[in-house]
Design a protein around this nucleic acid. Structure first.
Length: 297
DNA sequence: CGCCAGGTGCTGA
DNA sequence: TCAGCACATGGC
């Protein structure tokens, strides 16, 4: 268990605020939040603002620690530690996936990137929206979804909206969702929301199942194929064997198969054998590296 | 303007 | 099982 301390910022008493501090060794906050696994964080004056559940959190990294403040006491240090996966030993994970030069360089460049433990429903809904789409637009779509159907939340001057419950989205119409710019994903999202809302898909149960069972269950949702299921298993259900393959990862995988043309399934099977139990971490390092280094071809 | 984006579902072989 | 195709939309 991490040591928790509190510290009072050195500003005039009337403006003083109490921040909580949690240890964050071997962690890179900005890299993690910019790596395309979460879509709702925004940066202001060196602080990152996000919404976890029904509360806003503002957080910044100071060396090997995170300082944060939240709109609700339910956002405990333990909860944030868990969200950022700071309880995992990153060295061990990176050692296990550091099996070739390509991933080795990605690790050197982005060390501290961690796979978040996000809410299962939010991850599922978000990645249905993410299919055949670009990250900028995904962020806009999800913002509009929260604005229209979430509950207002705030911290000091910062205002936002929580992620809508499955019941709320299930109660909308396809037309309403299309009006938010979801395009052909609108009926997929609504159908999946209904599956969760009526209890056909019990997301709370998935956490204790293994990767294959989780993926099988997720594939039963409309708008969820191989890639989206892997993203949800990885970012929402801690299934680190999951290895989502999108167009960026297809490019990354050319490194291993210069000439032979491989199906996504072939690449997927190879990656899981090649990288092992934490293949998902390798995927996230390669994905982020390719997207941030201009050499994409 | 044309190309691309954290793909999926459907169809027909 | 697998290739080929349609699908909405906005950023660049």
């Amino acid at each position: 268990m991490p040591v928790i301390e509190e510290l009072r910022a050195e500003i005039p008493p009337t403006l003083s605020r109490t921040f909580r501090v949690i240890p964050a060794p071997d962690f890179a906050l900005r890299t993690t939040l910019a790596s395309g696994q979460a879509f709702r964080w925004t940066e202001h004056d060196g602080w990152f603002y996000g919404c976890l559940g029904e509360s806003i959190v503002k957080v910044r990294q100071q060396g090997e620690a995170l300082e944060y403040e939240a709109s609700s006491p339910s956002l405990t240090p333990a909860r944030l530690t868990r969200y950022f996966a700071l309880d995992l030993n990153l060295s061990d994970i990176l050692s296990s996936i550091n099996v070739d030069i390509q991933v080795h360089h990605a690790i050197l460049r982005h060390r501290g990137l961690r796979v978040l433990r996000q809410d299962g429903w939010e991850t599922l809904a978000s990645f249905i929206c993410a299919s055949f789409n670009n990250i900028k637009r995904i962020e806009g779509m999800i913002d509009r979804l929260c604005l229209a159907y979430g509950r207002p939340v705030g911290l000091h001057g910062f205002r936002s909206f929580s992620f809508p419950a499955p019941e709320t989205i299930a109660a909308t119409t396809e037309r309403q969702l299309r009006a938010l710019g979801l395009g052909y994903r609108a009926p997929y999202l609504k159908a999946t929301a209904r599956l969760v809302a009526d209890g056909t898909l019990k997301l709370a149960h998935l956490r204790r199942l293994d990767y294959d069972a989780v993926k099988r269950a997720l594939l039963g949702c409309d708008g969820v194929g191989d890639k989206v299921a892997d993203c949800v298993a990885l970012f929402g259900f801690e299934k680190y064997e999951a290895f989502p393959i999108d167009v960026w990862m297809e490019r990354a995988m050319r490194y291993y198969f210069r000439h032979r043309k491989m199906t996504r399934k072939g690449l997927h099977d190879y990656a899981r054998r090649h990288f092992g139990a934490y293949a998902g971490y390798a995927q996230q390092y390669l994905f982020h590296d390719l997207r941030t280094s201009g050499r994409n071809a």
